[in-house]
Amino acid sequence: MDFSLTTMFVLPPNNLYPSTGSTESLLAKQFGIYGANYALYTTADEPYIYLAQGRFENIDNTGSKRSAKIAKSKLVSFYKVSAEQNTRNQRTILSNFKIKCGEEMVITIRAHSNYIDAGFANGYTHSVVVPAPCCDCGSDPCSEVDPVDVGKMLDDAVQKFSESGPFMGSVLSNYITVSRAGGGGPAATQLVIEGKPLKKDGRIADISANPWEYDRLWYSVFVTKAADTTQDYMTYDRCEQIATITTTPQYGYVRGSSDEIFHMEKYYYSYQTPHFKDLMCNESWNGAFESYVVDGQFYDTYYIKFLSYDDNYTFDNALPQDQTVIVAIPAGQGVQFEEIMTLYLGPFKNYSGVPVTISSTTTTSTTII
């Protein structure tokens, strides 16, 4: 099934796992792992375990927040997703321009993000046309443009990209910077295109809203030659690239930020409290909602999916409903949790992905990511 009854725990930094007592001894925010009979988990022979956390609020004697019974015989999956805050913006360098005198160079950038794609079909596309100088005075009027003149053409392209578009101002300038590489030699004839960090909505006053979203910026770049005249609607190779395009793609998405975890707290809140399940616009009406997220903190997240311990799933006309527990732990502080859970459930899978590395792909056409 694609729906699971979900309970989420957000651990405080340097959580102190209890060594004595039961759930009634938990301090506010303190998190512990327990076996049968409300005793602390000590042996892998327990028929089931459950997770619990002390609350600030104790509405209607609800006590500590608890997960359902987690039995290793009913386990579906157990995995981890590490926090990732070191994403890098996409960067593209255009070099080795092959443009002849009298021709026109077309540079096209097609950008994508959640907001861009919501406003523009197939991304926002911005093209500039830069004419090459004439070389009538030379011995070969069709020779390639001198590097000095290529630099002037790139300055012209930078200026045109900075100008306002046909409507909504210069949309592209909100997301991408275009500049000519400095210095002399070959670098002087390189155009640098780099994505900007996306603006965040941040947390809004309405606690019932969930404004955080997974988003990233990516774009494609094309450098082609325009038709010789406005009458020449066909060319030998309309998509021929006349420059080398070197792209360092953006690495994935930010994972485990405090904004993301705060969003998840609200999203799963109604599944883990017996009272005041709805989140109201007026915070004073949210009697049982508590956020344990620390602003600016990144979190590793652990997911445990399992079937109900008490349901034998005898034949009836209903489908079994699985459950999920999500545990968000400050990045790098999950060693003890991993040890305890691995002892009972066995090893977990790590779905964190490949660590951030910087790599470049050089082709004669753009790199689509």
Score class of each variant (00 low, 15 high):
L75I: 13
D201M: 05
V335N: 13
Y38N: 15
Q323S: 11
K74A: 09
N174G: 04
A227I: 01
S270P: 08
Q321H: 08
I326S: 05
G21C: 07
Q231H: 13
A288C: 10
T7L: 03
A328E: 03
D146I: 10
G287V: 05
D237F: 08
V356L: 00
S308Y: 00
G334K: 11
F337Q: 10
I93V: 15
K349N: 12
P347H: 09
T43W: 00
S77Y: 11
C239D: 14
T62D: 07
I59C: 03
L154M: 10
V81K: 13
K225Q: 13
F9E: 03
K100V: 02
T42A: 10
Y214I: 06
A188P: 01
E24M: 06
F348Y: 15
F337M: 13
I358S: 10
A226K: 12
I59K: 08
S164N: 15
Y313K: 04
N96K: 12
G202L: 03
Q321T: 10
T230G: 14
W218Q: 12
K72R: 14
S220N: 14
P355V: 01
I369L: 07
C137T: 01
Y124Q: 04
S220Y: 06
G102H: 03
Y38D: 15
A243Y: 11
N317E: 08
I326A: 06
Q53T: 05
A121R: 11
E194V: 08
G35A: 14
E24S: 15
D117F: 01
G256T: 03
S208R: 12
R88Q: 15
Q85V: 01
Y115F: 02
F3M: 09
G346V: 11
L94V: 11
A39K: 15
L51A: 04
I49S: 08
L343R: 14
G252M: 03
S291L: 05
N89D: 12
F97D: 07
M1F: 11
T301D: 05
T367H: 03
E338Q: 14
V10W: 09
V150N: 10
E260L: 05
S173W: 00
T314A: 00
R203C: 01
T314N: 06
D117G: 01
S164K: 14
K199D: 04
L16T: 08
T363I: 00
E339V: 12
F337C: 07
P330W: 14
A71V: 01
Q323F: 06
I107Q: 04
G202H: 01
N96V: 01
S82E: 12
T87I: 14
I193V: 09
G35W: 08
G182W: 11
S170Q: 07
S64W: 00
M105T: 03
M1A: 14
R203G: 07
E84Q: 07
N14E: 12
T361W: 02
E283Q: 13
G184D: 07
D206K: 06
T357P: 00
G32V: 05
G138W: 00
D232T: 13
V178G: 14
K29R: 10
Q272R: 14
T87A: 13
G346H: 12
D45S: 10
E46G: 05
D206M: 02
Y351S: 13
G334D: 15
P13D: 12
